[in-house]
Design a protein around this nucleic acid. Structure first.
Length: 316
DNA sequence: TGCCAGGCGGGGT
DNA sequence: ACCCCGCATGGC
């Protein structure tokens, strides 16, 4: 499929700390970021894609590609949301700079905003992370894209991949889904896809699904639901706290596993979900034994030469 | 080469 | 309210 450009525009970066490079590169694939240009899926129906790059003076150049005529104002508002250009993190920075675990990463990661993804994408990411390492989980997500996704040609910028949607998934059988090496998660993914098709879930960013509703889905627990809230809505009130983060909290702050979540909430307040995500970036999502070693050696900031949340796009 | 990893639900106490 | 187990798969 080929898409043609429907308009160009610019976006102004308002918050001076904002770092487009971080927003575009962190937890991303090569088919969405090449070190310069970010390709963002804006809408699936009608299919609409934007290419975005920084052109200096805190200005982002935006080109939008679509199959049909689109509302420029609506699209630009959506891009503003997806990139988190509106988000003021100054209160969070005051906590971040002072924190025993994360202060060393502040100068590396200041300016990062979560690149918002639709609920469906966020749930896929969460499910693929369940009981698996960072590397394995992201390979599963990449497999879903490359095996079942659609390749789209952008006039001047080559191909991108759009992930399979819920409708694509429900038309497959479980065995087919398992070929993406997602193991027993195939059933969970199918179940979530059905919820979207049955309008129990919506990808509309203004339709905010509560955690208490998300955990009603088979295979979605608090970790996955909270991660989805962080990745989709930038709601950070309920932190994803998994075994990995519990052990880090235990090691750094000498807090028992059972109290780790309450401690994290007290420490970060309304920013606790963002702090969870930033911890994974700061420690390059290393498996727990290596992460603890990194903390012991003081290397609590991203390294450039390993596959990590920051460098994923160079590897996959 | 066997563990076992950014979960989860079910079945035990 | 807890504890414990199985679960697909791949990395180490």
């Amino acid at each position: 499929m080929k898409l043609f450009r429907v308009f160009r525009d610019h976006l102004k970066i308002i918050y001076e700390d904002y770092k487009f490079d971080l927003v575009a590169s962190v937890y991303n694939f090569s088919w969405y970021f090449d070190g310069d240009i970010l390709k963002l899926v804006i809408n699936y129906e009608p299919l609409t894609i934007a290419t975005i790059r920084e052109v200096g003076n805190d200005v982002l150049s935006v080109e939008v590609y679509s199959r049909s005529r689109v509302s420029k104002d609506l699209i630009m508002d959506l891009i503003n949301y997806l990139l988190g250009l509106y988000e003021d993190l100054n209160d969070f920075y005051q906590l971040w700079k002072m924190d025993k675990l994360l202060s060393k990463s502040f100068n590396f990661l200041k300016g990062y905003r979560v690149r918002a993804s639709p609920l469906w994408n966020s749930l896929l990411i969460g499910v693929c992370q369940q009981n698996a390492s960072f590397k394995q989980g992201w390979k599963m997500v990449a497999n879903l894209h490359t095996i079942f996704g659609k390749r789209i040609n952008l006039e001047n910028y080559g191909d991108i991949i759009i992930p399979p949607g819920p409708k694509d998934i429900i038309n497959m059988n479980i065995k087919e889904l398992e070929s993406a090496r997602v193991g027993y998660r195939a059933k969970i993914i199918m179940n979530i896809a059905e919820a979207f098709v049955n309008d129990i879930l919506s990808n509309d960013f203004s339709n905010i699904h509560k955690i208490s509703d998300l955990v009603k889905l088979e295979g979605v627990g608090h970790y996955t639901a909270r991660l989805a809230q962080v990745l989709t809505y930038r709601i950070y009130d309920d932190p994803p706290v998994d075994r990995w983060l519990k052990r880090i909290i235990n090691f750094v702050y000498d807090v028992p596993d059972k109290e780790a979540e309450a401690f994290w909430r007290r420490k970060w307040g309304r920013w606790s979900g963002l702090a969870s995500l930033i911890t994974t970036i700061a420690l390059d999502a290393e498996v727990i034994s290596k992460a603890i070693k990194r903390i012991k050696s003081g290397k609590i900031y991203p390294l450039k030469n390993i596959m990590s949340p920051m460098t994923l796009w160079r590897y996959i």
